[in-house]
């Protein structure tokens, strides 16, 4: 009797496994997941009601630049080959603001310069390889505070005058993890660790703040993660391009060097959060994008963060002389597009 019961149970188990496997197979095939994985495409874009009108343009000597801030009509940008920030003032005059950091820090170690969100008169200079962040007053050339992380960190986002959200190496080498780093009472400590672990390089991306939440957008595939104020994962969103690839890396010389096996295709190059909208500069052509127009355009896809990262539309604007973008910045209704020899400022209107 028992033998019979046991056999029925076994058969039921096998049938359940068969059903689950069949469902997974059907899901995979019906959504053409493998095809989409390879080709990108398989999606369509629609234009938004947002319009852009060029308001200012600045000529620059050919170089590699990044926008630092748009501060009451002044545009601050950095030249990656110099230890300085340049300000294009409202009256088109130009001032050079040297970075007040120790001379021993090589230029290559200055990963990011961002405006202090708590006190916008200050700027944060992130020297990731040195594990240091300098809070400086660029206009007076003085350092207000130095935050020593004592380890490699990247993509720091200021939360208060002494706390930052940033990415640090995870529990395993080769993994990066968002954390909240506190420097209260002069003592540095990690107060929160996200369960989200990302493979270094393969899952490299952008880490930005949206109100009390954080967004991590992958550069090489369509995934983005929305984290709450405790860095717990709220949901996983997907940009409309269908690329799910996680590029492979190879470790050399006893894991001291990691390289991509093949140069990966960038899917999402830049992202900005404005209000409840996530704006992503996508590099993947949709089925309804004209190939010739697409490669000559800057494509900014919009996602509504209030509704689970739902795609709402796309803004297209012409590339300046067909050149690749170096940086995108949006603040106070001004969109700044940085090219190797030009900075364009657009008015954004709904």
């Amino acid at each position: 009797m028992k033998t019979k019961n046991g056999n029925v149970l076994l058969l039921t188990g096998i049938v359940i496994v068969g059903l689950i496997t069949g469902f997974l197979y059907y899901h995979f095939k019906s959504k053409h997941l493998a095809e989409n994985f390879f080709k990108g495409g398989g999606f369509r874009r629609s234009q938004t009601a947002w319009t852009l009108s060029l308001s200012k343009s600045y000529d620059l000597p050919k170089g590699y630049y990044g926008v630092v801030a748009y501060d009451q009509g002044d545009v601050l940008y950095r030249d990656y080959s110099k230890k300085e920030v340049i300000s294009f003032n409202k009256d088109y005059s130009k001032s050079v603001l040297p970075l007040p950091i120790p001379g021993t820090i090589p230029i290559a170690n200055i990963f990011r310069i961002t405006q202090n969100t708590v006190d916008p008169s200050f700027f944060d200079i992130q020297c990731s390889n040195n594990g240091e962040l300098f809070s400086v007053d660029l206009r007076n050339g003085r350092t207000a505070a130095t935050f020593r992380f004592g380890r490699y960190f990247e993509k720091a986002v200021r939360l208060t005058d002494c706390t930052f959200a940033c990415m640090i190496q995870g529990d395993q080498p080769n993994f990066m993890r968002p954390v909240i780093y506190s420097f209260e009472h002069g003592k540095d400590s990690i107060t929160k660790k996200s369960p989200l672990c990302l493979i270094a390089m393969s899952e490299d991306g952008m880490f930005v703040r949206h109100r009390d939440e954080f967004i991590y957008l992958n550069s090489y595939n369509h995934n983005f993660y929305v984290l709450d104020s405790n860095l717990e994962r709220k949901y996983q969103g997907k940009t409309i391009d269908t690329i799910a690839i996680v590029p492979r890396t190879i470790s050399l010389r006893n894991n001291t060097i990691t390289k991509f096996i093949k140069q990966p295709q960038i899917v999402n190059q830049f992202c900005i959060v404005v209000g409840d909208t996530l704006i992503v500069n996508s590099k993947v052509r949709a089925d309804n994008d004209d190939p010739e127009v697409f490669w000559k355009s800057i494509v900014l896809d919009m996602y509504d963060l209030k509704h689970g990262g739902r795609y709402t539309g796309t803004i297209y604007t012409d590339k300046y002389k067909g050149e690749e973008l170096q940086d995108v910045y949006l603040q106070s209704g001004k969109l700044l597009l940085m090219y190797p020899d030009k900075l364009l400022v657009y008015d954004v209107a709904l």
């Binding site: 899901h27 959504k31 997941l33 395993q172 672990c197």
Partner: peptide, 20 residues
């Protein structure tokens, strides 16, 4: 390593659109 485990599932194309 729950976070890591879920991240691994996220990368699987079979679980596209599922709450991993």
């Amino acid at each position: 390593g729950f976070g890591l485990f879920v991240n691994g599932l996220d990368k699987s194309l079979f679980f596209d659109d599922f709450d991993t």
